[in-house]
């Protein structure tokens, strides 16, 4: 499965989750994801509680996440929590800590502890 398909599935799971939609109602953010080994860029957008995804650069992103392709895939398919590669230095982020925590909470609410 390529990363874009994984992100689309992730966005769909978010959109199907009422609690998440309510939680993200006021969270309008553009997140850029950079797969460092393949040099491919993707994005996730949260607006009015709905998540959308796509490929390509995201200008004016509030949050920039970079990691290897396989790590991004594992995070957005629930194999690992974002915290694991983050605490190992394999996932780097630029942006506000509150936003990073929000992303982690989203994965927590989808896949549980």
């Amino acid at each position: 499965m390529d990363l874009l398909a994984t992100l689309e599935t992730f966005a769909e799971q978010c959109n199907q989750n009422q609690r998440l939609r309510k939680m993200n109602r006021d969270w309008t953010r553009l997140v850029e994801l950079w797969a460092t080994d393949t040099d491919q860029r993707y994005w996730l957008k949260s607006e009015a509680g709905w998540i959308t995804s796509g490929s390509g650069e995201a200008m004016d992103a509030e949050l920039k996440i970079s990691a290897r392709h396989d790590i991004l895939h594992d995070i957005f398919s629930g194999v690992i929590t974002p915290t694991e590669p983050y605490n190992a230095g394999d996932l780097l982020v630029k942006g506000r800590q509150d936003d990073m925590m929000r992303l982690d909470i989203i994965t927590l609410l989808i896949w549980g502890e």
């Binding site: 983050y86 605490n87 190992a88 230095g89 780097l92 982020v93 990073m100």
Partner: peptide, 14 residues
């Protein structure tokens, strides 16, 4: 090298 809020957790691990 590792601008991360996990700071020492990352640095000492590596």
């Amino acid at each position: 090298m590792y601008p991360s809020s996990a700071a020492i957790r990352v640095w000492i691990r590596r």
